[in-house]
Design a protein around this nucleic acid. Sequence first.
DNA 1: TTTTGTTATCGCAATATTACAATAATATTT
DNA 2: AAATATTATTGTAATATTGCGATAACAAAA
Lengths: 109, 109
Amino acid sequence: MGLTKSEIFTGEQNRLASLFKVLAHPARVAILQYIIDQKNCICNDLVEELGLAQATISQHLKELKNVGIIQGTIEGKSVCYCIDENIWKKIQADFNTFFNQEVKVNKCC
Amino acid sequence: MGLTKSEIFTGEQNRLASLFKVLAHPARVAILQYIIDQKNCICNDLVEELGLAQATISQHLKELKNVGIIQGTIEGKSVCYCIDENIWKKIQADFNTFFNQEVKVNKCC
DNA sequence: TTTTGTTATCGCAATATTACAATAATATTT
DNA sequence: AAATATTATTGTAATATTGCGATAACAAAA
């Protein structure tokens, strides 16, 4: 198999899992941290900083862009990437909602 | 390839990504939500609730157990699973640290 | 227009993940 | 001890992800 059965889960569960998945790779965590630290950057900055091939970085940037957490603006022959603050805060809020569920004491553990 | 180059990232980046990865599947999100809602449950409850095969649920439980977010206690012939509150809060704190990095306004986007 | 700099896409190979049937392992019940 | 109930593990097939070389696409500079 190898095919996640998305249809048996709720939209919220699938959406949350998708958000977690985008962050589930150290390169994408590193990219986000770098962009936050530098305020913005271009693809080649990340190639130098992280030591992954340009094609690989471009692919990771695409995934981050797909969920909207970053956005790219064409600037001459390069593309300036930065965090989309609104989406960032929205994702943060979604995670908070998930984690702020009260974990009650239970009998068996 | 297909092999994440963990060695080029920091321990924190790898650790964060691992945490996100555990939550990056709707079945595991659903399992956590169910356990939180019911306070605790056994594997077979989840098999009925989610409609995945027993082997599949057991595998997902194992991954959740591996990061410590849940723990299982043998109770007769079944195993009672529940959230490990301390680990849960620790993960929540880690995510907050990541997300609370200030995202500053930048020039290009 | 040619060259240069930058990014995106395609195609491929390697590895990882997901799902499940079959079965082993373990504890309880009869 | 045999049957039952529950979970874990193993093996396998299907799909997904990761990484990169090659190359296309595009804009600026020469």
